[in-house]
Design a binder for these strands. Structure first.
Lengths: 192, 192
DNA sequence: CAGTGTGGCATAACGCTGCTATACATTGCG
DNA sequence: CGCAATGTATAGCAGCGTTATGCCACACTG
């Protein structure tokens, strides 16, 4: 029942339908009370939906196999992240809805941890110098997040991703110590 | 009446009060119908509020005086942009609310134009090479936007701005052709 | 095996939301 | 002065999230 409600809510979210309590209960074939027994009302359900969104994101990032080029891996992780957000924009927006509580630290941290790990490998491989892997990951994440939200909102066209993400990643990774030319090639390879 | 409604809505937004039709009408001292005669319901009012938000942002950016160091100016514009967003986070979030229509192209374009102009001056001054000023401005905007939203949402602490914005701007401007050392100094001076 | 709780769902109602139809007032113009 | 028109007040509607209450079906227990 819990999972049915979460999945139905996520489905309505990706279908651009308004996720309302009554419509949700009707679609699942139960009554509105189910949301109150299994969650703490709609806010609790939204929290569960966002947690599910982060879990899906973490799974998707985990599917990106690590290669011997950690900078390429960072770009590939960015591509997987962007693809996930573009395919389910409403879910992505709900995951970062500022009106709600903080996203679940565990599931969100799992996704972020994959990025930090890749940055750490770049540091160990000598591609980065004198930087905190978490800082590099945060900068990549924030840049991509902002660009994605602007694209999802329709402020920027979708082509803006292909135009600006590789440029931003190359700038960030070069500033972290990677050789600019080699970095650009790795980013191109990873962004695909 | 129009302006009174817009300003009251903006005031309730910064006061973290829920902006509801009845509460808004009561505070302004009129009836709910006023919102329908002057705007097209609440959606129209939200559009006007966002337009007002972009107008305030454009005014604030225009107050940043241009110096003989265009890269410093870009960082100073970023600082003014960030300060405006941090001071009125609810209004900033409303400005980019993806559920609504696109922000008013005129007022939003005015704010963005200031950034593009500064990037153009950097190009003319020889600080940037072989780049589109609009592309540099877009990358700076998207990076700052993403970082600001993460801070406003509480995902990142406020100190993350001072830690990551100068690093990101230096990375972007260096990738645009500026000398890294000189760029870092200009960004530090502008970010203040 | 019958009795008894107990957890989970259906029903109905409450207060709130945005919105609209209608009646009234007030202003400007011929 | 009377008429037209614009903007506001009132009342009500459908929808929302939430909650109080009743029921039922399952599980544990003497």
């Amino acid at each position: 029942m819990r999972t049915a409600l979460i999945e139905q809510a996520a489905a309505m979210l990706v279908a651009r339908e308004p996720v309302t309590l009554r419509a949700l209960a009707t679609r699942v074939g139960t009554s509105t009370m189910a949301v109150y027994t299994h969650f703490d009302g709609m806010t609790g359900l939204w929290g569960a939906v966002r947690q599910e969104g982060f879990a899906r994101l973490a799974r998707r990032l985990a599917d990106v196999a690590a290669t011997d080029d950690p900078v390429r891996d960072l770009a590939a992780l960015g591509a997987a992240y962007a693809a996930n957000a573009i395919e389910h924009p409403a879910l992505y927006r709900a995951m970062f809805d500022a009106a709600a509580d903080l996203p679940d630290p565990e599931s969100a941290g799992a996704a972020f941890g994959v990025l930090v790990a890749a940055a750490g490998r770049a540091l160990e491989a000598g591609r980065f110098r004198d930087v905190d892997p978490a800082a590099v990951a945060t900068r990549q994440w924030a840049s991509g997040h902002g660009l994605l939200l602007l694209v999802i909102s329709g402020v920027l066209p979708r082509e803006a991703l292909d135009e600006h993400v590789p440029a931003l990643l190359t700038a960030i990774f070069s500033a972290a110590g990677d050789d600019p030319g080699r970095c650009a090639a790795s980013v191109r390879a990873g962004w695909g």
